[in-house]
Each structure stands twice: as C-alpha cells, then as structure tokens.
Computed example of a mutant assay.
Amino acid sequence: MAPASIIRPIREKARMLPTHGRHAYHPWRGRPAWTWPNGARLAVYLGVNLEHFAFGEGLGAELAPGGPHPDVLNYAWRDYGNRVGAWRLIETLDELRLPCTVLMNSAMYHHAPELVAAHRARGDEMAGHGRSNSERQSVLPEAEERTLIAEATEAMRRQEGVAPRGWLSPWIAESHATPDLLAEAGYRYTLNWCSDDQPVWHATRHGPLLAIPYPQEVNDIPSIVARKDGAAQFAEMVVEDFDERLRQVRDGVAQVMGIALHPYIIGQPYRMRALRRALAHVAAHREAVWITTAGGVYDHASCLPAGSLPG
C-alpha cells in the first residue's frame, strides 16, 4: 500500500479537479418515481436538424476527406438534405403521424424557406440551432456569442411569431458562458448535454435552464459519418435502444429518448427505407410511450414537484 504521504496529495488533487458547476452528481438508482403524460414512463422525441453551410468557407461535415475550398463535393452532399432528403423525411413523418422538433439554423429562412414552411404547416416545434453550421459559438468572446444567440433568436421570432424555447448549439459547442447566455436570452431548455437519461436542471446566472438529453449514440452523424455504420445498422440501433428502454422503465424511473436526424445523411433513399422501418416500430408502441417534442418534454418536466429531477 502506498504511504499516506503519497495518497493524501493525490486525493487533494482529485478534489480540486475543475467542474462546470451547473449541476451535482445524482446516481440513477434511487431517483424519485414519476411518469410522463398518460402514465407513460418513456418519452420519445425526434430532433430533425435543418442546417445550412457557407460555400467556400467555414465548417462542414464531410462525406469524404475535403480538399481546399470551395469543397464542392461535401457542400453539395450537405445541400442534398435541404433540396431532397428533408422532404422525404417529412413524407415519412406524415405517414407515421410523428411530430418532431426542428433544430434550425436561422440561415434556413433565406436558403430554403419552403422547407421551413412545410415543417411549420405540420405544427412541428422550432428550436434554435445558431445562425449556420459553418461556425461554432464556443470560440467566440462572450459579447460575440451573445450577439450570435440574439441574431438567431430574433430571426426565428420574426418568422414564427414567437421566440424559440430550446437551443442546440451548432457542433454542440459551448463556451463556459453558453448556459448563462441562453437563460439570459429567454431560453428554457438546452439540448447540448447528453450526460443523462432524464432532464437535468442546470444552474445559470439567470435562473434554471433544463438540459434535455440529446443523443450522441442514436444520432446519424456519429453513427453513420464517424463510425461508418450502415443504414440497417443505424435503424437497428434505433429499435434496440427503444426496446431496451421500454424494458428498463419497468423499474419506475422515467426516461427520455431522443433520435437525432440530419436530412443530408438519413435522407438518402436506402437510409430512409431502413429508418422508416425503425420509426414504424416506435410508432406501433404509441399507446405505451409518449411520443412528443423536446418542448413537450420541457412543459411536463418543468411542472413536476421540486426534487423530481436531478439538478
């Protein structure tokens, strides 16, 4: 056994590790039991990302290793989602009677207004997703990040008549001040944190902000782009994740399951075919689960008795 003179400094250093200070640790076991509407213990929402990218500059997901700008291959691949893939996804959502939360770059109002209007006509929730996915807010000084949030929010307020309540940062990028700036701007929930299977209250300088789990596993970017999973493999992941959660919630601890979709990826015909089968499986259980939006999760979770959610 190491002498106390060695162990003590190690323990002291461990206690001094930097922390975000937004919420405390809460073990899964022993959490309060509560339910979603109609007694469901599993809430499911779809996060559909509508993203626009600058041509010839800035960030962008890649189908293949990109060359110097203008990177026509990858730009065109991404824009396929707005021109074609997103419309195919809407048809599937209509067919299965599934709502979604649209995670939208405000640049979409100018780039593809018809697509935005189609989601609006469905009654889908519109949530903020920055100005475009060619930039990330985490590298900006606080004043510039505040401006980015304000500009994206105001564009959505003008177009939708109400400001969005939820936010997902482009590239899930947060600065140390992002939760404070979101609460300051009037946001009620963030999708940036994937550290739990229940919503978690985050402390900010301007009051509480609810972190609703947004998946980084059941998400077509890390699955298909990063891990190179096939269409059938991703669809099977959706089904397996859903079925396992249905089994787990028998213990009385409610969960929320998100499914993250990007039309330029999942909107390819062969992937849509596999996804349709997976979503049909979820829809077939609509009497046993609560199929909703991220905003619906917020509305219910925010009305639960104090202490029901970790924070």
Rank of each mutant, 00 (worst) to 15 (best):
Q255N: 10
V297W: 03
R273E: 15
A231S: 14
Q248C: 12
E95W: 06
P222E: 02
I266N: 01
S195H: 14
A280F: 02
D71H: 01
L17F: 12
D196L: 04
G267D: 03
V102F: 01
R245A: 14
R78S: 06
P141S: 00
G307H: 05
Y189P: 00
R78L: 08
A235I: 07
L59Q: 06
E125L: 13
A301C: 11
W201I: 01
R250G: 15
R286F: 09
L59G: 02
N38L: 05
R276F: 06
P3I: 04
A143G: 05
T292G: 13
H26R: 13
V139D: 14
R78C: 04
L275E: 00
T92N: 00
P164W: 13
E154L: 12
A278Q: 09
G230M: 05
G207R: 03
V116C: 14
Y75C: 00
L304C: 08
Y80V: 00
H69V: 06
A278P: 14
R120N: 10
G258T: 12
R227D: 14
A76I: 04
V102N: 02
N82V: 00
L59E: 12
R78P: 03
R22D: 06
F55A: 05
A143D: 12
G58Y: 02
M16T: 05
A284H: 15
D251P: 05
Y75R: 01
R146T: 03
I149R: 07
M257E: 01
G67P: 02
G258V: 15
P179I: 00
A155I: 09
G207Y: 05
A173Q: 09
A288Y: 02
I291N: 12
C303I: 04
R122Q: 12
L209S: 04
R165K: 14
R165G: 03
V200W: 07
P305H: 03
R277K: 13
A61F: 13
G161T: 10
R136L: 10
A2V: 13
Y75N: 03
R247G: 15
R41N: 13
P215D: 08
N219M: 07
L191F: 11
R136K: 11
A235D: 00
D94S: 05
E62K: 14
E145N: 03
T147I: 09
D299G: 11
A288I: 05
S134N: 03
